[in-house]
Each structure stands twice: as C-alpha cells, then as structure tokens.
Amino acid sequence: MFEARLSSTLTLKKIVDALRDILNQSTLDCSDTGIQLQAMDNSHVSLVCLCLRSDYFEKYKCSRNVSLGLDLKSLTKVLKCANGDDAVTIKAADKADKIELSFESAGKERTADYELRLLNLDQEHLAIPETEYSCVIHMPASEFARICRDLAVFSESVVIACSKNCIKFSANGEMGSANIKLSQTSKAEVTLQVDEPVTLSFAGRYLNTFTRATPLSEKVKIGMAADVPLLVEYPIEDYGYIRYYLAPKVDD
C-alpha cells in the first residue's frame, strides 16, 4: 500500500511541468524512503532524475516498494482539475493497475477523487557515478532560464565556457552571435567554483526544456567537467531535487 499526501497541489503541478516536456511516460519508484524517477528522453540525449524524500510529504506510507507507470499527459489533465492550494493524496494498492488522486479544498468543503490507469513500462536504469565536476556554478534559476531563452534565437548549439572569473554562454548562427558573461557577484547570487576551466557545447533546445523546472527553485546548480554530461540541478526545498543530465556535442 502506498499513500502520500501533499498540502499543496501546486508543488506537484510544478514537478510534473518540469518533466512533461522531456518525458511522455515514466515510472515513479516508491519506497519507504521516498519517491524516485529516472528516465531518458526519447532521443537518449538527456536524462532526468527526480528525488523526493518521504519527509517532503505531509503524510507518507509505503509498506512495500511499488513502481507506478504514469502517462504524464494524463496526469497533467487530472492535475488541471485541482486548485493549486488543494491538498492532494496519492494512493495505490500493491500490484495496482491504477492510482487514486484525491484533492481536498483548503476549507475541506470540497473533495474530488480521480483514478488514473497505470502503464506497464519497460524500465531501464542507469548507474550515475559520483562525478567531481571541474566547474560548479550556482546562479538564480530565472537568470539561467533567461540566458537559455535568449540564446535559442541565435543557434541550435550553446557553448558554455567556465573559467575562474566568469561563465560565458555563447551562440553563433546565421543571424549573428550572442555572448553572455556572468561574474561572481558580491551578494553571492552567482558563485563559481572552478578547479579547471571547461568549455563544452550543448543543444540549446534541451537546456530550454530543463528550465521548465524554474518555478520549483530560486537557484540552479550547474556542474561541468571535460567529456562528461552537463548537470543542471534544481533543488526542491531541502527535500529533494530534479537533476537533468545533458550529453555534450562533440566535433565531428
């Protein structure tokens, strides 16, 4: 039996919004420690990992590990039926073929129950090694979203170059070029920890998709090292995170 309650449906909506442009369907792995999701996009260019610890939830019960295969479009449709400030309870029986979502209004005068059919999805798990990133950048999530959006106008590829003094985002296309540099700020809105300078090239379309997680977090962490995927991490308060990994582009 699995049961998890959140006091606000809005956070669940934000989490699903951060996933649904990259994944159509995915499996939530629920255990007594919390909820995890790991999946590659259809093109196998990026990987997304969601981790929510059990103490993120107002109530959390998971007597046996369950895997819930979900169609994220359908889940979005159900979440649209709820107000952001409704409390939401997700329930699934052992070996269930559906989950139940119950929404309760803030004043408790309205409850609405929905059932969503589960999918049997082939699951492929990848082991993600602990990586020592040569460059770790923290910046406001809204700033990162703005940069990704602005650069997408110029080129499919975005070059990220991180050095001791600054991080530079560049795009170069037929229309022209764009270069955006950020230095570490005294207010620590932007911080750079650089052991070795790194320059890598990435598909801007994916970076833009990752920024769908912006409403979840004030800050974003970016990790870069030579010849490894880019890490873009959005913390979910102190209880978990969404991490996106993006394979670099290499010279042909």
Partner: peptide
C-alpha cells in the same frame, strides 16, 4: 560541425 552524443554512452546500465 558538431555531433550530438548519447547520454546512455556515459552511464552504465544496472
């Protein structure tokens, strides 16, 4: 010209 690599090539299957 740059070529997109696959994320699966960086991580091992479990």
């Amino acid at each position: 010209q740059s070529k997109q690599t696959s994320i699966a090539s960086f991580f091992t299957k479990v």
